[in-house]
């Protein structure tokens, strides 16, 4: 299991202490792949389609494949929250009024 706090230096060795600027230098901000990696993988140099692909290029978290951009349709009816407001067994203003 990867230690979350473990960051590698340019030679791939773990860095125990790290300054913020050093850390930031390691981030592949532009998302471009290293030439050798690209040649090996044969991946085309395209802009990112999804945030998932973007995150997948972050170098320090191991080599998980980019998540699919497919969004699963979830048909849970959100608008129906309103139904919750009128309940058969609940007290209403008129009930309250009758009590005073």
């Amino acid at each position: 299991m990867t230690d979350l706090t473990q960051v590698l230096d340019a030679q791939g060795q773990p860095l125990s202490t790290l300054t913020v600027d050093h850390f930031f230098q390691q981030i592949n901000w532009s998302g471009t792949q290293q030439r050798s990696a690209r040649e090996n993988s044969g991946a085309p140099e395209t802009p990112y389609d999804t945030v998932g692909q973007f995150f997948a290029t972050f170098p320090w978290q191991g080599a998980t494949a980019a998540p699919s951009a497919r969004r699963l349709a979830i048909d849970i009816d959100e608008a129906a929250f309103d139904q919750l407001l009128a309940e058969d067994d609940a007290l209403t203003l008129d009930d309250l009024s009758a009590l005073f």
């Binding site: 309103d82 407001l85 009128a86 309940e87 609940a90 209403t92 203003l93």
Partner: peptide, 14 residues
């Protein structure tokens, strides 16, 4: 906001 008249709503929620 809730598309219901206050008189018809659950009192505590209201």
């Amino acid at each position: 906001e809730y598309n219901i008249r206050p008189q018809q709503a659950n009192l505590m929620f209201l």
